[in-house]
Design a protein around this nucleic acid. Structure first.
Length: 909
DNA sequence: CATCCGACACTGC
DNA sequence: GCAGTGTCGGATG
């Protein structure tokens, strides 16, 4: 269940008559417990309560109190030994009138009327595993608002089938934005009189919804008509005339109004009942945008950027700089004045703005700085110098664009209330000012300069204080500072839609022949770089970490560097997290690209490092880009991908199945080979694959079980969308890619946990087939193994190759073939061979421990560690005659060698 | 023919 | 749900 569903269930529960016996179970059901779980609790099997209540292990201890005894009952719950023993997270006591609860971990308490439980459901969200971010917990109104609007939107679509069409959808979205504005306006005093809008609809419309549309149209009309000074507007009934002139923007266009049924009218009124005063334009906006999108509904803004992540972009982009200028100004009035001038000129542009939360946060933070300026100048703010027209956005979805415009207006009003005053804010708000410049469209196709025209500061503005000088161009013209930010969509090449591929082509074709492996998000970086070309600025986006790893680096970054940009700041990989119920599974980075001569900052977790330059691998050091190559740079063994079945599982049998088959059909024994992928390589396990030579095909097909598997493979490959699978459909007994020679080999897992200090590699005899989940060097001398499992090689792989999350991913073309190795003498090779053998022997001494067990950094046996130390020492002495002090030194040496070796090669060509 | 990646995908707690 | 850790095969070169 997501938070919206929980809110609905809890609100419903608190409105029903209180049933003392049922309450604990209904409560647990509202938080998404399954029927079966509740049945078991009810039967007493899993109910661990020792005070006659209901206690769910690891969760909550609930007791129903005698009337007026809630506080005492809560105390009993707290004192109960079972509460602690069963690790309850919450205790809750209620008598149906009053409710007391405590979150035991934090000691936070809740005390409210029972009927008010719905408004406090956020307190209990950890019960459903939704706990990480305080924002939702503290602002349940955002969820409730989303939930109510959700119902209204769906019902309106039901009542007005024609409004669902693509050309009418925009009008419905605009209509919803108007409704939200009205709800907000009636709760904040923008409209005179409490609940003016909702109560007008309530009293003026029939319960069956029949005339709701007419009433709303009348109200829209009024809000779009300027009243003659102080007088009534002619032709409007008094109930409509009570509504103020709001203005063009929101109410100008004639979008009509959908028809209402009894149900949709009721939902409209229920939405109006909420107190919209405290909604957060950032959180609410991102949740609400899912309302208009069937696919996203229920996901609740899975891709919405949390405020901490937005700050990761905005702070280093320009807010920290503003704050620093504020510090420098101290109480110097002139300097403070200049800073305020600067604030009034900055432009913030989010070309993937969604519901506008980057823009909203930027606006609020800028207002906070302005407030501090006024405080230090000892002046009262009467009108902010920061205008919403300084904020620009592009958004592809019409509803989100609509919400972005509205969210900015709400943010402006809330800031006016906070920094100027309640009454003044009300006086200022109507008629509505121009809001942000939000364009609905595809950011990769429309002209950014048209959306956010780079204007220069006028002479008049300059006289008022002049720009800070930081952004002066050489020619002396003074452009406004423009900061580009956002969180554009990510999509790897395999999952890009046809439209997205076409977008990619439109951007990359002029730069590259091979660009198709780039992530979709890289388009925004190129677009931003093109926009910044010839002027000063920085653009920073949240992105998937894969554009700064592996093969994508060599495709994307040379383009950006050539356009005159460098990495201005960056945050290294962090896990995507927001308060959506099901987070997107992705590891992110933040990268700012720009052309300002300022110190570069690299943020790693909570640490910041200042540097002269940041590499596209998000490390500090010389800017070197490693390109994949098909053969080794150094005289080391050839390495390939492992054997790829593309069999839908049909070639693979576990040990037990294979043995029972061979027991029944002994002639099939020679059709099997031991099969090793990443998992078997590291964690052991007993798997076999069918390895059928052409001249064994008759024997294989004759066996019913195996024959069946072969025909399954054929069917699967025919069905597949993949070319290689199709092409190999008529040889369904063979792997689609099979470098297996029958000789021995060294294999490295293609993925490995970043916890390990050494790559999981092993030596296999010819009767083992290594899968495409590992890279293999066939018939390779053992000293190659010594290199593969060295610290030196891991440092290289960790920097150069791609990652899965933040785990190592091994690649022969990127990591092995590019690895610089000095010329090895026969003695060197003999020594390394000896080291490799010692490592294998040390492992054997711990048979049958797996590599995963042996290489757990906490459990690694001392003899194995000693063998690796010896190996590292021997190898590193060959490089520099001593051991390296750390990985920084290792990488420095490797990059230096790489640069030398690749430029020499180029010269030779 | 050969490979790199996944707004990932499981598994186990 | 979350932490830990690597499947599988498509799309692309």
């Amino acid at each position: 269940m997501n938070a919206v569903e929980i809110e609905e269930a809890v609100s419903d529960l608190s409105q029903e008559p209180f049933d003392a016996a049922e309450f604990p179970f209904s409560f647990l059901a509202a938080f998404g417990n399954k029927e079966a779980t509740i049945k078991r609790l009810r039967s007493g099997n899993t109910n661990k309560s020792d005070v006659g209540g209901v206690l769910q292990r690891n969760n909550i201890h609930i007791a129903v109190a005698e009337p007026g005894q809630t506080v005492e009952t809560l105390a009993r719950l707290k004192a109960s030994p079972q509460t602690e023993r069963q690790k309850a997270k919450f205790i809750l006591a209620t008598d149906g009138a009053q409710l007391e609860a405590e979150e035991l971990g934090s000691g936070e308490v809740l005390s409210c009327r029972y009927g008010d439980l719905g408004n406090n459901f956020g307190f209990f969200l950890p019960l459903a595993g939704i706990s990480t971010v305080a924002e939702v917990k503290n602002n349940p109104i955002d969820i409730k608002a989303t939930s109510r609007l959700n119902r209204l939107y769906v019902q309106l679509l039901k009542d007005n089938a024609d409004w669902g069409s693509p050309d009418k959808r925009g009008d419905l979205n605009r209509f919803m934005a108007r409704m939200i504005f009205c709800f907000f306006a009636e709760d904040t005093g923008i409209f005179q009189g409490d609940d003016l809008f909702t109560s007008t609809v309530q009293t003026m419309t029939e319960a069956d919804g029949s005339n709701t549309r007419d009433v709303l149209l009348r109200l829209f009309d009024a809000m779009n008509t300027r009243a003659p000074d102080g007088a009534a507007r002619p032709g409007f009934p008094s109930w409509a005339d009570r509504f103020p002139y709001v203005n063009g923007g929101l109410f100008a266009d004639d979008i009509g109004c959908p028809t209402f049924s009894r149900t949709s009218r009721a939902y409209l009124l229920r939405a109006g009942e909420l107190d919209w005063k405290t909604i957060n334009p950032d959180i609410f906006g991102s949740m609400i945008q899912a309302v208009a999108d069937e696919d996203e509904r229920g996901e609740l803004g899975m891709h919405y950027t949390s405020v901490p992540n937005i700050q990761k972009v905005l702070d280093p982009l320009f807010l920290d700089d503003l704050r620093e200028q504020l510090e420098q100004a101290g109480t110097n009035k002139r300097m403070l004045f200049n800073l305020r001038q600067r604030l009034s000129r900055i432009r913030v542009f989010d070309p993937a703005c969604g519901s506008g939360n980057f823009l909203v946060i930027a606006y609020i933070r800028m207002r906070e700085i302005e407030d501090e300026i006024m405080r230090r100048r000892g002046e009262a703010l009467t009108r902010s110098a920061i205008s919403l027209t300084q904020f620009f956005g592009i958004e592809i979805k019409s509803f989100a664009a609509e919400i972005a415009r509205l969210s900015l207006l709400i943010a402006e009003f809330q800031c006016d209330v906070r920094f100027i005053g309640q009454a003044e804010a009300r006086a200022l708000v109507l008629p509505l000012h121009a809001t942000g410049n939000i364009r609905q469209g595809n950011a990769l196709r429309i002209d950014w300069e048209e959306v956010c025209p780079p204007a220069t500061v006028s002479a008049e503005e300059r006289d008022l204080g002049g720009p800070t000088g930081r952004l002066n161009l050489e020619g002396g013209s003074e452009e406004r500072e423009i900061y580009i930010c956002g969180n554009p969509p990510y999509q790897g090449s395999v999952n890009q839609s046809q439209a997205q591929k076409a977008d990619m082509e439109s951007i990359f074709k002029k730069y590259l022949k091979t660009y198709k492996d780039l992530d979709y998000v890289s388009s925004w970086f190129v677009r931003a770089a093109e926009y910044l070309k010839g002027r000063s600025g920085v653009a920073a986006f949240v992105s998937t970490n894969s554009i700064c790893q592996g093969e994508q680096v060599a495709m994307l970054w040379p383009i950006l560097f050539k356009l005159g940009l460098e990495i201005d700041f960056a945050h290294t990989s962090f896990l995507w997290k927001n308060n959506a119920s099901n987070n997107a599974g992705v590891t992110c980075i933040v990268v700012g690209i720009g052309n300002l001569t300022r110190q570069k900052l690299l943020f790693e977790g909570s640490e910041v490092r200042a540097a002269l330059g940041i590499t596209p691998y998000l490390t500090i050091g010389e800017r070197v880009i490693v390109r994949k190559q098909t053969s080794p740079l150094s005289p080391i063994a050839k390495m390939q991908s492992g054997n790829k079945p593309t069999d839908n599982g049909n070639f693979i049998l576990d040990g037990e199945d294979k043995r029972s088959l061979v027991r029944s059909f002994p002639e099939t024994e020679r059709l099997f080979r031991r099969f090793v992928g990443s998992r078997e390589l590291t964690q052991g396990g007993d798997r076999y694959c069918l390895w059928i030579k052409d001249n064994d095909l008759a024997v294989a097909s004759a066996n019913p079980e195996i024959g069946n598997r072969i025909s399954n493979v054929r069917a699967f490959r025919l069905e597949s969308r993949g070319k290689q699978a199709n092409e190999n459909a008529e040889t369904p007994h063979r792997f689609v890619f099979s470098p297996h020679t029958g000789g021995s080999c060294i294999a490295v897992s293609n993925v490995s946990s970043e916890r390990r200090e050494y790559l999981p590699a092993n030596y296999f005899s010819g009767d083992t087939v290594v899968s495409n989940l590992a890279s293999v060097a066939y018939d390779a001398p053992l000293w190659n193994f010594s290199i593969i499992v060295s610290k030196l090689h891991l440092a290289w792989i960790a920097t150069i190759c791609g990652k899965l999350k933040t785990d190592y991913r091994y690649s022969n073309t990127l990591g092995w073939n590019t690895f610089p190795v000095p010329k090895l003498t026969a003695t060197d090779k003999a020594r390394l061979t000896r080291c490799a053998a010692d490592i294998l022997l040390a492992r054997e001494a711990h048979f049958p421990a797996t590599i995963a067990e042996l290489y757990d950094p906490e459990m690694m046996p001392t003899d194995l560690r000693a063998a690796h130390d010896c190996n590292d020492e021997t190898l590193e002495r060959i490089y520099i005659g001593r051991r390296f002090r750390n990985d920084t030194e290792r990488l420095e040496k490797l990059f230096e060698m790489y640069t030398k070796m690749t430029t020499k090669k180029e010269r030779a060509n």
